[in-house]
Design a binder for these strands. Structure first.
Length: 93
DNA sequence: GAACTGACTGTAA
DNA sequence: ATTACAGCCAGTT
């Protein structure tokens, strides 16, 4: 689950979907997150695209917000990408 | 039910 | 490194 992503690490949509037993539903994962109210306090910002790249255009607030929060957790965000080291495939959960 | 659409991904030019 | 494109699947139109 997204909430299982350890602080200071990020994962990918595909990985999340797989972990949920839904291979090939990467998009659905993103959709789910989008619909999920923040009251659920899900660390949606710890979910990025494959290779650790942020899916939103860098001009959007979403992108800024995500990058900002990730950096706040110690994740290195550079040019709309997170350090590959910070990415966890979520396979261990 | 066809046609779009999208918080995706991998391959190719 | 950037851009294009084709699979992908579920929800909308």
């Amino acid at each position: 689950m997204v909430g299982a992503i350890p602080r200071g690490s990020v994962s990918t949509y595909g990985a999340v979907a797989r972990a949920a037993g839904l291979p090939g539903r990467a998009r659905m994962a993103g959709r789910a997150l989008r619909e999920s109210p923040k009251e659920m306090k899900l660390p949606w910002h710890r979910v990025v695209g494959a290779g650790g790249k942020i899916v939103f255009p860098r001009t959007t607030v979403n992108h800024r917000e995500q990058a900002r929060r990730l950096r706040a957790e110690g994740v290195v965000v550079k040019a709309g990408r997170v350090s590959r080291e910070a990415i966890v495939d979520l396979e261990q959960f």
